[in-house]
Structure formats: structure tokens, C-alpha cells
Amino acid sequence: MSRIDETLEFIPTRIAVLTVSDSRSLDEDRSGQTLVDRLTGAGHLLADRKILRDERGEIADQLRAWVADPEIDVVISTGGTGLTGRDVTVEAHRDVYEKEIDAFGTVFTIVSMQKIGTSAIQSRATGGVAGGTYLFALPGSPGACKDAWDEILSKQLDFRHRPCNFVEIMPRLDEHLRRK
């Protein structure tokens, strides 16, 4: 079973938060604020925060900019993961991914099923890696952000989490770029 190894030192990651919405402002962004509160409360650093419209190209461009920034380790977006015509965040993420973390969406669905039952089927939460940066797309509700952070990301972004975590393999994410 998973656990925190208290003999190890916590390593903070630098996380950018992106809210995808045609209608929210920073003051009204409860989902983004939920993520900011949780990540900073856990000891991580807020590297950047933005709100963008549901425009695939703009979202992908912002993700690429953050992937290229050596001061950002993780990007978490909220919003635009549903099934309606304007929900293009998942497609924008996949435009950027080098590798998809297939099990992230599966585990998120399992967590969601416990909270909202079969309504979890409407989420297309996803995760991936590009340029040595982790990227996660979460639904736009504060509850979904809370669940994803509390049940998945807080553990996988904690170096002390055992048996394994995302932070310990972070230095190797871009090793293919260093091979000769």
C-alpha cells in the first residue's frame, strides 16, 4: 500500500495552473484557486497562473511555452475536458504530449466514481509528459480539482511517496534528448 516515507526530504515542484474558460475571470476562478491553495498548502511553488479561452491553438501554445520554461516542472489545467463542442483542452494537451500517462484518466475516473457515480463517464481527464514537464488536464469543477489533487497528484508529486512517484523519475523524463 502507498505511504509517505518520513525519512526522506520533501522536494517542492514548480507548478503552473491554467484555467480554460470563456466566461471566468481570475476573481471568479474557484477551480484554479482550489488548485493553487492545495499545491501551495502542500509546499509546492506556484510558478505561473493564467486563464485562457477554450481555443485549442491558444491552449497548446501556452502549454508549449510552459514546457519550454526550465522554471516549470508541472502544468495543471482545469476546464474544457467535457464533451461539448467548446471542450478542446484534452485535444490541446494531446497536441503537446510526447507520452500520455494513460492510467491517470483511469485512476481519476475511479476516484470520481466514488464521488459522483456514473457521471464520471463525462470527464476526459488526461495526463502526459512533454520536454521533461508533466501536464495534467482536469475538469472545471472545484470538486474535481480537489479530488484529483487530494487523491492522485498530492501523492505522485511528493518525492516521499512510496512505492514510487512522479518526482523521483523527473530527472529522467527527457533522457532521450540527451542520448548520443
Score class of each variant (00 low, 15 high):
1 M>R: 06
1 M>P: 08
2 S>M: 12
5 D>E: 10
5 D>M: 01
6 E>W: 03
8 L>P: 01
8 L>R: 13
8 L>V: 04
9 E>P: 10
10 F>W: 08
11 I>V: 15
11 I>G: 00
14 R>K: 14
14 R>C: 05
17 V>P: 07
17 V>Q: 03
19 T>V: 09
21 S>Q: 07
21 S>T: 10
22 D>Y: 11
26 L>K: 11
27 D>P: 00
30 R>F: 09
32 G>N: 11
33 Q>K: 15
39 L>F: 07
42 A>S: 14
46 L>G: 08
54 D>N: 15
55 E>H: 13
57 G>N: 15
57 G>K: 14
57 G>M: 06
58 E>G: 14
59 I>E: 01
59 I>N: 02
64 R>S: 03
65 A>L: 12
65 A>C: 11
65 A>W: 09
66 W>A: 10
67 V>W: 01
69 D>F: 08
69 D>P: 10
70 P>Q: 09
71 E>P: 00
73 D>L: 10
74 V>F: 04
75 V>C: 04
76 I>E: 08
77 S>L: 06
78 T>N: 15
79 G>K: 09
79 G>P: 10
79 G>M: 04
80 G>I: 00
80 G>P: 03
80 G>S: 07
84 T>E: 13
88 V>G: 00
92 A>I: 06
94 R>G: 02
98 E>Q: 13
98 E>F: 05
99 K>L: 09
100 E>Y: 02
100 E>K: 06
102 D>E: 15
105 G>P: 08
105 G>W: 03
108 F>R: 04
108 F>W: 09
109 T>C: 02
112 S>D: 10
112 S>G: 15
115 K>I: 12
118 T>P: 13
120 A>L: 09
123 S>F: 03
125 A>L: 05
127 G>A: 06
127 G>V: 08
128 G>D: 05
131 G>I: 07
134 Y>T: 08
135 L>N: 06
136 F>P: 07
138 L>P: 04
144 A>W: 12
145 C>A: 14
146 K>W: 01
147 D>L: 02
149 W>R: 05
150 D>A: 11
150 D>G: 08
153 L>H: 10
156 Q>L: 13
161 H>Y: 12
163 P>G: 01
167 V>Q: 09
172 R>Y: 13
177 L>W: 03
178 R>H: 11
